[in-house]
């Protein structure tokens, strides 16, 4: 992958102050953002819900990474992620989630971002920074891959 490849995180796909009634609502909101930025067809949202019902995408540190199924790759137009924060918390099968990183992928364009997210989740201070960032630009810079990852 060339280092100059644009990162599939559109600033328009970062929402710091969302609220959701429940897990499915939070996932649907992530899906709608991915639709709005042109990354997926609307039917992708249903695949995200189905995927979540099979196995939770909760990954720790109040973060979940909802995404579609293998079959739904066909309705992904381009790799993208979105970041939606739910400061009020969402019950995620017994876990509290305040950050959703929604994923749409047909290639590997999002791999660097997920790698960075994994690093963040292993460092409690970084995870807190992701949960509490006041600006979209802070979220973008936290997820910006470091030199080592490229």
């Amino acid at each position: 992958m060339p280092e100059t490849a644009p990162l599939p995180l559109d600033p328009r796909a970062v929402r710091l102050d969302a609220s959701a009634a429940d897990r499915d609502d939070a996932i649907a909101q992530c899906g709608r953002v991915l639709v709005e930025i042109g990354a997926v067809e609307p039917s992708y949202v249903e695949a995200m819900l189905a995927r979540e019902r099979s196995i939770s995408t909760y990954v720790g540190e109040e973060v979940a990474i909802p995404h579609g199924t293998l079959a739904a790759k066909d309705v992904v137009r381009h790799d993208a992620i979105c970041v939606l924060r739910f400061p009020g918390g969402v019950d995620w099968g017994g876990e509290r989630v305040t950050v959703c990183v929604g994923i749409a992928a047909r290639g590997d364009g999002h791999v660097r971002l997920l790698s960075e997210l994994a690093q963040i989740l292993m460092d409690p201070d970084s995870a807190r920074a992701l949960r509490e960032a006041d600006e979209v630009s802070e979220v973008l810079s936290l997820l910006q891959p470091t030199q080592e990852d490229q």
Binding site: V59, L70, K73, V111
Partner: peptide, 14 residues
């Protein structure tokens, strides 16, 4: 993982 686009990607990088 199911789709090879989410959790497995993250774990693989680790």
């Amino acid at each position: 993982c199911d789709a090879g686009m989410g959790s497995s990607v993250m774990l693989a990088s680790q």
